[in-house]
Design a protein around this nucleic acid. Structure first.
Lengths: 94, 94
DNA sequence: ATAAACTAGTTTATAAAATAAACCAAATTT
DNA sequence: AAATTTGGTTTATTTTATAAACTAGTTTAT
């Protein structure tokens, strides 16, 4: 009937992050922040959670003098997202 | 870009409840419990929350000697669900 | 008739998650 | 050189979700 929803993706912000990363393959912290409207703190925590689950990789470098955090989705992340999409559909009717 | 998700519906159990009620228009507590696999306690709390938001109405009666709790979706609930469906689609890509 | 088990839930307590606020280090601007 | 900005992280608070315990009564078996 209803497929279980991956709790890691069933979060407005984390779902938005993963949704973006699926389409762009690489995104800077500031890009994710702008696109999602999240606060820095919230974004920082949520990307860490996605990282801990191996849904994304986080690369830290410098852009000029400033620190730069770049995120990329993993194979596992893509699969989890695709599964989530299928699962949520079971709740949406029709 | 990403439409905001009604927090009341962005919950696995409450979404399942509303999804069911949209299709059946009336459901007993035990029916919802069986279909969703929720515990009684969790179900009890979640239908109360939906009731407080006027997304459903809760009718208490008796079936034989046993208490019977019946839920029905409201106009407001249907609209909220339809809006949620549109909103979540903005995260699912394609 | 009474104890045991079951129905149909509610309430309370605990764990997990999301969000906000405060903070940090370094860089830039005035 | 003081104030502000960048690009975040950490800590604290609030909100949610879940589980455990409880209530109130019913049915079944003894």
């Amino acid at each position: 009937m209803f497929k279980p929803l991956d709790p890691l993706l069933h979060s407005e912000l984390r779902l938005a992050i993963v949704s973006l990363l699926v389409s762009v393959k690489e995104a800077e912290f500031s890009f994710l922040k702008a696109k999602t409207g999240a606060t820095s703190g919230n974004l920082s925590i949520q990307i860490q959670k996605l990282y801990e689950a191996d849904y994304i990789v986080i690369e830290k470098s410098f852009k000029g003098n400033y620190p730069l955090t770049t995120c990329r989705i993993t194979k596992k992340g893509i699969e989890a997202f695709e599964q989530y999409v299928e699962a949520i559909k079971s709740y949406l009717g029709k």
